[in-house]
Design a protein around this nucleic acid. Structure first.
Lengths: 238, 238
DNA sequence: CTTAATATCTGGTATATACCAGATTGATTT
DNA sequence: AAATCAATCTGGTATATACCAGATATTAAG
């Protein structure tokens, strides 16, 4: 290519996006193969990949391991301060949620969680690891650490749906104070593997601490989201 | 390299991080040049850059255009629902904030903002564009759209410090309801340029709508953060 | 029809190399 | 001492090429 004074990969990026828009490619539609694009834009695969990487960073396309590149669907609007949870949020916005429980166990509270919860290290906690999808695209893995004092026998329940609904309806638990932390964080290790993305992919980390009205530890939650799948929307009145 | 069954760039990533940790390289210290690293790890620059890109995605290192790679300082803890603002937040955490006003003007409300604010298109608004730094590293560019009804003559004030302090102390304005949106978003165009990062770099977008107690439009704010500079921490009581 | 083996398509990783452009440094001139 | 210029160092972009490994489609066998 070349021609303009702009870098080739920027030109490819923009033309490719134009092409996607013109063809009205929507949620999860597949792009032509990299080699195909390289020859179409008369450049090399390396440069095409740079352009694809840009569109990926912008959240416009995403990749599925060795299967190809796809157009990213609209972001999910998610309010972590409300109680409606993943399942309802996704449904309300017209998508199909699904959840797989990867592991669940009763374990002893590690030191970092002891510090956060205010309970002594070694206190029993439930630990549930789940992978959640929107329209069969994996978008997050979630670690739930739940205080068993309030919900004995939780692990024998079905954890493939909303845990919060379980806590509310079966155990009559209600959260009071929460502290939420959110920041961009690359997906690596088991999170990247569980989501089927390349290690180092952009992600969003979100953690929530939930206490009951007396300030006792109810639940701690760590979520690792694919970076382009959600928009956090918080209502903060004062 | 090679040797292990792990990809070379992963090995380089990990060894490089080990090396950084061992040498206790801290905030904004410079790494050896890419060519130097390539020969040290006995591989090519392309592969080294892949490894550097991983550490960058993890927020562990950052680049400064054609100057080199540096170790990322600790993230700033930032609560967008509180009123203390950038300047105080940074100072409180032991860093040195600074702000440059890139442009300020009285303009007419564009349609997208009219929709958000509930005011008619073309209504006069102040528009202030600022670049803010922590310890001389640019970390965000910010667009402020402010309702001049409440603060006539704002633009002749000094906008290199806290605008909110100005509004509070000079104009006696107090926010009430706000809506905050946060999501990962690559930095492109003027934001990338203003921050001196490559187009397509990972970033965090944050917008805030602030109304007064009567529900009138006070201010709208769009912030484009470098992805590794902050940790959003929200206290949400219910 | 189902299952298993195989070919093929896809992105993932890697090497080698080249030149460009901004940033920095050092020498030279004023 | 200050300003100017040139050399050099740095990351940024680009081409060409190769092989690997997982995913998918095709074919052959049961």
């Amino acid at each position: 290519m070349q021609r303009s004074d702009l870098p080739v990969y920027i030109q490819v990026r923009d033309q490719l996006w134009l092409w996607i828009s013109e063809h009205r490619l929507g949620g999860q539609e597949r792009l032509p193969a990299e080699r195909e694009l390289a020859s179409r834009f008369n450049t090399t695969r390396v440069t095409v990949r740079q352009a694809l990487g840009q569109l990926e960073a912008e959240g416009k396309i995403f990749r599925s391991n060795r299967r190809g590149w796809y157009v990213t669907p609209e972001r999910l609007e998610y309010d972590p301060s409300r109680d409606i949870g993943f399942y309802n949020t996704v449904s309300e916005q017209g998508y199909t949620p699904s959840t797989e429980t990867l592991s669940k166990e009763l374990t002893e509270m590690p030191s970092w969680l002891a510090e956060i919860s205010g309970l002594p290290e070694g206190t029993p906690v439930y630990h549930v690891l789940r992978r959640r999808s929107i329209d069969s695209r994996c978008v997050l893995v979630e670690h739930n650490y739940i205080n068993p004092v309030n919900c004995p026998g939780l692990l024998s329940q079905d954890t493939d749906h909303s845990i919060w609904e379980l806590l509310r309806e079966t155990y009559n638990l209600h959260p009071s104070k929460r502290q939420i932390e959110i920041y961009p964080q690359a997906l690596t290790g088991i999170e990247a593997e569980a989501l089927g993305v390349n290690p180092g992919s952009a992600g969003l980390y979100m953690q929530r601490l939930t206490l009951d009205t007396d300030g006792n530890f109810l639940e701690f939650d760590r979520e690792y989201w694919v970076h382009d799948a959600l928009k956090v929307s918080v209502q903060a009145d004062q």
